[in-house]
Design a protein around this nucleic acid. Sequence first.
RNA 1: GGCCCCAUCGUCUAUCGGUUAGGACAGCAGGUUUUCAAUCUGUUAAGAGGAGUUCGACUCUCCUUGGGGUCACCA
Length: 538
Amino acid sequence: MQDIIAKIFPKNLPSIDELEIKYSKRDLPSTAMVTRICPSPTGFVHLGTIYMSLICKKFADQTNGVFFLRIEDTDKKREVGGAKEIIYSSLKEYGLDYDENQTYGPYVQSERKDIYTAYTKYLFEKDDAYLCFCTDEELKATAEEQERLKLKRGYYGKWAVWRNKSEEEVLAELDKNTPYVIRFKSHGDGEKTFTHHDLLKGNVDLPENDMDVPLLKKENGLPTYHLAHVVDDHLMRTTDVLRGDEWLSSVALHYDLFQSLNFPIVRYGHCSPINKLVGSSRRKLSKRKDTEANISFFKEKGFVVQAVIEYLLNLANSNFEDWRKENIDKNYTEFNLSMEKLAKSNGPLFDETKLRDIAKDKIARMGNIEVYDRVYEWAKEYDEYFYGLLNSNKEYWLKVFNIERVGELIRKDIAIWSELYDFYNFFDTEKFTKPDWSTFKSVFTQDEIENILNEYKSIYNPQDDKHTWLGKVKDLCPKFGLAPDIKAYKADKEAFKGHVGELTQLIRYAITGRTQSPDIYEILQVLENKEVLKRLTI
RNA sequence: GGCCCCAUCGUCUAUCGGUUAGGACAGCAGGUUUUCAAUCUGUUAAGAGGAGUUCGACUCUCCUUGGGGUCACCA
């Protein structure tokens, strides 16, 4: 035994007693929750990571606990350069500040190699771990055999061929330098079940663990997820592990590991992931196939962060939107997230339409200065042309963004920054081109339209206040057979060619090149008089 | 396939044995409006199927079906 230990473990490993003292229990009230988010640095932050972080952070905050971030970079093959930084900045961008106190660190798993090795050695010494010299081919053959016999696959029971080998046999392989992996010696009986109480799923009966999973990887000596999770969450004194429900079937293994290491078991909550509808079936949002799985999607499109947060919060606790209605001006952090209400269905479908609705509302509540500042920040990165425009004439664009942005009824037509330019593009006088009247639907002929606009041009005065302006438009109506107000028109449709809307629509089309736009009067006020007159000339 | 989870309007969901099954988004209709948007009013739309338990079941139990997850030296 000592021979083997001497051969496979480094000399100066920390002792587990020291570790236990170094990372001692946190000084927190008993109700405080210590939660964490553990992404892998793959160059990509999944929407689900933000979702889980939000939930974890809220519970930590609500209980005066701690929320921290741990980077799970044990799979060096998948790691991408700069990925850690993307994780850091993404969480901060979403306001998901995590505890950076290093007392329980380091929080990057590859920097904790000795710790995992120390615990593996401990397990080995207490005969809860052993060396396995199986080759990939042998493992594959075993799996095929199990498949053929319709048995559970894996390294367990009689298939765990190295579990009970003698020291001599192990030493012999070691002398031959045969590559090996250190496996956990499971304690359960796969035929028996036990009850796991899950924070979200309730009581779940699961088979006991009989899988002898690898603890450390052959490739680089870093731990597998299972060992790393158990060791880290114990040492970092996590109280509540909230994670995706793909982990539910691993909890037996994790219990086994916790017990074998004499650690108190954490509380687990397994959460359904956000899904997407593909054809007629739903599946988890996939980072490879679904652009919206990557949170950079929302940044590029120009979704307001708060909207994404609140959309996710509503997915977590559907009563959030009721709370929001009652507490319009409060910060979402004041909402009390409930564990019981955490949706435990099979995973919601991502609904961009609903997100857009929330986003529209957020933007509608901003003043023109905030709109300017935000779209400016967005354009700086994603729309060079618009950025240049915003830069060239801030005062002008502030006036543009102020249109129908004051008072009771505020426009709600912009959901994301990337559609803002198109919405206001007629204010880009350099690029504005005369509209095509041949496709314009009207009760008037082309000549009549030209005539009407000329007539209007002669009475238009930019000094007019809104009331006067509208009065002039209405005064012009009878001359062209239009009813000055809609009610009169509706009362006797036969008597008129149309109502005042017909006329304003002509003006709108001439000025904006569109059949829909914000309030025309306000648009006219923002545009220079010279420009207005130019546009009124067909 | 074994094991596990899930099942209410198109979508997200409420209901913790007795409700006209509620809300939000989307849709539709209308009021208002200089258009559109907004807003207001109204409205379409749901308990997968089958057995039980019960005076009574969306709610509890079982079966079926359907969907999802897991079964890696990936997390």
